[in-house]
Write a protein that binds this DNA or RNA. Sequence first.
DNA 1: CGCACCCGGGAGAGCGCTCTCTGGGTGTGT
DNA 2: ACACACCCAGAGAGCGCTCTCCCGGGTGCG
Lengths: 357, 357
Amino acid sequence: MSDRAAKGSPTLEDVAREAGVSRATVSRVINGIRNVDPSIQDVVRRAIATTGYVPNRAARSLVTRRADTVALVVSGAGADEGGEAGDEDGPGTPFRGQLLADPFFGRISAGVVDFLRRRAMHPVLMLADSTDARKQVVSYLRQGHADGALLVSIHADDPLPETLVAAGVPCVLFARPPRPVPVSYVDLAHRDGGRLAADHLVARGRQHIASITGPLDVLASQDRLAGFRDALARHGHPYVPCEEGNFTLESGERAMSALLERHPEVDGLFVANDLMAQGALHVLRERGRAVPDDVAVVGFDDSSAALSCRPALTTVRQPVEEMAAEMTRLLLERVDQPGARPTSVIFEPALVARQSA
Amino acid sequence: MSDRAAKGSPTLEDVAREAGVSRATVSRVINGIRNVDPSIQDVVRRAIATTGYVPNRAARSLVTRRADTVALVVSGAGADEGGEAGDEDGPGTPFRGQLLADPFFGRISAGVVDFLRRRAMHPVLMLADSTDARKQVVSYLRQGHADGALLVSIHADDPLPETLVAAGVPCVLFARPPRPVPVSYVDLAHRDGGRLAADHLVARGRQHIASITGPLDVLASQDRLAGFRDALARHGHPYVPCEEGNFTLESGERAMSALLERHPEVDGLFVANDLMAQGALHVLRERGRAVPDDVAVVGFDDSSAALSCRPALTTVRQPVEEMAAEMTRLLLERVDQPGARPTSVIFEPALVARQSA
DNA sequence: CGCACCCGGGAGAGCGCTCTCTGGGTGTGT
DNA sequence: ACACACCCAGAGAGCGCTCTCCCGGGTGCG
């Protein structure tokens, strides 16, 4: 049992001796390669059990040149390059890497972990939020500790996709890269999400429909808005008042205030994510506007924030876990055949109707 | 640059040849071991640069018997053992591993990642939410893919701590194990947290003080309540009405309703976590009780939920990131000297005064 | 009955690295 | 001046595994 405590756990050699066969045969049994006589297989398996053998990962990796691990890289712009302003100054913790505390990222890791463990694999978690950290990530991957990278990039100006592709590291992105890079990715049909929200608000009979958008230098924000606008135009609403937020609760509150100021007649609202929608709800309540009767509100993401709103938030669901799982599948495929062309998989959003609209 | 694409990246041998020295010398330079003549160091470093050499992790691990990696294991009770009821049925996703989406866990990983990367290390993320998954975790660790485990256990009946300790895997827990196990851990002084809340409510002149507790089979819940009660008793409040919740928003709403039913006179409230406090706030607003004027509310954790409440939640801050960092430090220490006795480090909570009390 | 073939198993060569051991040159003590 | 300690670089032995090569015996076909 506590062979590990003794110096060195049993090796292939030990098992082979115990079973009275050669190392190669034991290896074959373990890896299920080539036909090995069933009776011998049995003997070997028994020997493995009695010795308590576990294969040494490092030794295997050394010869197979495979780590059987992937990296999950969360990447944001670093302090050392003039990235977007704003959401850097979070709720007072001295810790960088609040990225990780974002439940959206939590959903991604849940999807990744869940997919990987069916293959007995587990991701290495890395944060690339500065030039230094990015260097570390690249070097880490080049050291072969992981066979490839799942890249979740927050900021548009993230150089990591290019860098990794250039370094020959297999790599799949969550969300389409802003600049064209020959790399696979998964994404959501954000426009369709915007359309879903528009259709829903129109079906609820709303006449004065507005939107709180995400930061407009983010593709997803642009697309959600574009889809929303197009659909409204088709429904005969050519003009949509907008306020830009930056995906935080506070920005949602600010945007809502501004919107009420400029367009007090608003009775339908599409907010580009749930957290901002929660902020909007706060302001609407303060101003005595009933939701959904006076103003119907549709969010985006179907995050836990949507459920903690009162009234519970009607929102456009993004199947983040499924997307993350698919992203992982694509990466493993890519690791197996490095030559293949990049692919993309686009997921469809769905409207989740709750109380707010 | 794209040496990687060509068959095989450069090895120590290549660098040695380029520099005109032996493999051993290059190794020494890389690992900064023993005195190597500065001029030779220089030559070697130049050779490393021109060849684009990166050390092969697997080869190094094989001989050092160190993975230079730790596992971050999130462990909950599995479906296959009669664990606690309740919070299994989350917001409709078919995915297990919602544990990961919990922002509390996000804060832990942020602390871990942030600490590790200063040592150029990164955690492997594992989920142990079933007997099978737990087996996988143990076997993975025994394979030596990680030198030790950071264990975040959700449920009281989690057998993993014992299992890992028995398997001789270095291991540090987040929170004291319910059953005594010879293992290091970090924890919060939960009683002090309860006391802080009590003192604050009393200082605010509240007379009818109640509490919504966490599940009482969790040590942390018990301790928070005990600390709260003791402090109130010292302030001359011998009796504290309580309702038990299970840390979810909905349970907070239920508990608040029940409390108002039984004790409509309540004017001060301590809630064992922020999410339940958010639920309580919803109910108070519905019932027309102003916060903090009619009822003062103090939460626990200082999570992002505290900031998304309106009014913003006064709460007891748990320095999760620092605790996670310390947990990691303890583990690395332990990996370095496996013989050492288990230690524990207890952190002090702090009251964060916002609007709700 | 002989030969080509196939299939199950063993032997052995590394994968890239670290680290001990060794040897030669230099510095220090008497 | 000599002996001894010391320090730096090289040689070489593995770490535990996979995988190719090879060999012996059984099978099918001519």
